[in-house]
Measured scan of single mutants.
Amino acid sequence: MTTFKLIINGKTLKGEITIEAVDAAEAEKIFKQYANDNGIDGEWTYDDATKTFTVTE
């Protein structure tokens, strides 16, 4: 398992979430479901060097 981080730069929600996932594809699926569940819709980026996803509304 690898640790992945999501940085949320939303209009109403900001913060960071860290999860353990098998790979970046699994982490992205989990993070996008979390964002969808919380009404966050924005532009996604991923930095493989730091294993960090960012979503900006």
Rank of each mutant, 00 (worst) to 15 (best):
I30K: 08
E43C: 03
I17Q: 14
T12N: 15
G10Q: 10
G42M: 00
F31E: 00
D41M: 06
N9H: 12
M1E: 13
A35Q: 09
F4C: 01
N38Q: 15
Y46R: 09
K32G: 08
G42I: 00
T50W: 13
G15V: 14
F4K: 00
A24H: 15
K32D: 07
N9W: 08
A35D: 01
T50I: 05
G10N: 10
D41I: 14
G10F: 12
E28A: 07
F4S: 01
M1Y: 15
D47K: 11
T3P: 04
N36Q: 06
D37A: 11
N38A: 09
I19V: 05
L13E: 15
T12I: 12
T54A: 09
I30L: 04
I19E: 09
G10S: 07
V22Q: 07
K11Y: 13
A27S: 13
Y46Q: 15
I17F: 05
A25L: 12
T12Q: 13
D48K: 02
G42E: 01
I30F: 12
E28G: 15
L6A: 07
E26I: 13
K14Y: 15
D41V: 01
D48W: 12
E16C: 03
D23S: 10
I8K: 02
A35N: 08
L13W: 06
I17E: 13
L6Q: 00
A25F: 13
D48F: 14
N9F: 07
T45Y: 08
I40D: 01
E26F: 11
T3N: 08
E16H: 03
T54P: 00
G15M: 04
A25N: 02
V55C: 01
T12G: 06
E26H: 13
T50Q: 11
W44R: 04
Q33K: 12
I7R: 05
Q33D: 02
K11W: 07
I30V: 09
F31C: 03
A27T: 06
V22A: 14
T18N: 08
T56I: 04
K14L: 13
E20M: 04
A35L: 06
D37R: 08
D37M: 09
T12D: 13
I17W: 10
T18R: 12
K5G: 11
D47C: 03
D37L: 15
W44L: 07
I8P: 00
I8E: 13
F31Y: 09
N9G: 01
A21T: 10
T12Y: 13
Y46C: 01
N36I: 05
E26S: 09
A25Y: 04
E43D: 15
T18C: 02
E43W: 02
D23V: 12
I7F: 07
V22F: 10
T56R: 08
I7W: 06
Q33G: 07
K32R: 12
E57G: 01
Y34C: 01
I19R: 12
T2G: 06
G10I: 13
I7G: 04
T18S: 06
I7P: 00
E43M: 06
L13G: 02
G42F: 00
T50R: 06
M1L: 14
A21R: 06
T2W: 09
Q33N: 07
K5D: 14
K32P: 00
V55H: 11
D41S: 04
E28D: 13
I8C: 02
K11V: 15
D41C: 02
K32C: 02
D48Q: 15
T54F: 05
E20Y: 11
T56Y: 02
L6H: 01
V55P: 01
E57P: 01
D41N: 07
F31S: 15
F4V: 03
T54G: 12
I8S: 13
I19L: 09
V22W: 05
T18K: 11
D41H: 01
A21W: 06
G39L: 05
E57K: 00
F4D: 00
E57A: 06
A49Q: 15
E20W: 10
K14E: 13
Y46V: 15
D47E: 14
T50D: 06
G10A: 09
T2P: 05
T45W: 05
L13H: 08
G10D: 06
A25K: 12
E43L: 05
G42A: 01
D37S: 04
Y34S: 09
I7T: 03
K11N: 14
N9L: 13
E28T: 09
T52V: 11
T2K: 07
E57N: 01
A27W: 00
A27D: 00
L13C: 01
T45D: 07
A35F: 00
I8V: 14
G15Q: 13
N36M: 14
K5Q: 05
E20A: 09
K51E: 13
D47Y: 12
T2D: 10
T45A: 11
D41W: 03
T50P: 04
G42T: 00
E57D: 09
E20P: 09
T54K: 10
E28N: 08
E26A: 07
V55W: 02
D47F: 02
K14Q: 12
E57L: 05
E20H: 08
A25D: 13
I19H: 09
I40T: 03
I17P: 06
Y46D: 03
T45L: 05
D37F: 14
D48E: 05
V55S: 06
G15I: 07
A35E: 05
A49L: 08
T52Q: 15
K29C: 02
N9P: 01
D41Y: 02
A24N: 07
D23E: 13
D47H: 08
K11C: 02
T56G: 04
D23Q: 04
I19W: 15
D37N: 08
K29F: 13
E20N: 04
I19F: 05
E57F: 03
T54H: 15
Q33H: 08
M1R: 08
E20R: 05
T52W: 08
K14S: 11
A35V: 06
A27R: 00
I19G: 12
G39R: 12
M1V: 12
F53N: 01
T54Q: 15
G10L: 13
K32W: 13
A24E: 03
I19N: 14
A49K: 11
V55Y: 00
A35I: 15
A24R: 01
E43I: 12
T45M: 12
D23H: 12
K29A: 10
D47W: 09
E43Y: 15
K5T: 05
I7M: 02
F31W: 02
D37K: 11
F53R: 00
I30Y: 07
T50L: 14
K5C: 05
I30G: 09
K14I: 07
D23L: 04
E28L: 04
T56P: 01
I17D: 09
Y46I: 07
Y46M: 11
I8M: 15
D47L: 12
K51C: 01
G42N: 00
G39M: 14
L6R: 00
Y46T: 07
I19T: 08
D47A: 09
T56N: 08
F53H: 15
D47R: 11
F4R: 00
W44H: 04
E26Q: 10
K14T: 12
K29V: 15
T54I: 06
E16Q: 05
E16P: 03
T52N: 14
E16F: 02
N36C: 01
T50F: 06
T2R: 08
K32L: 04
K51I: 09
F31L: 05
K11S: 07
K5P: 01
D48N: 13
N9R: 05
T3Q: 05
F53I: 07
T56H: 04
T3L: 08
N36Y: 14
K29H: 15
L13R: 00
W44P: 09
D47Q: 12
I8F: 10
K51H: 11
T12S: 13
D23Y: 08
T50N: 10
K29L: 08
D48A: 08
K11R: 12
T18V: 07
E57Q: 03
G42W: 04
G15R: 03
V22P: 09
V22C: 03
N38G: 11
T50Y: 10
T45Q: 10
A49F: 06
E20F: 08
T18H: 08
I19S: 10
K29E: 05
G39Q: 15
N9T: 03
K5A: 11
G15A: 05
I40S: 03
A21F: 15
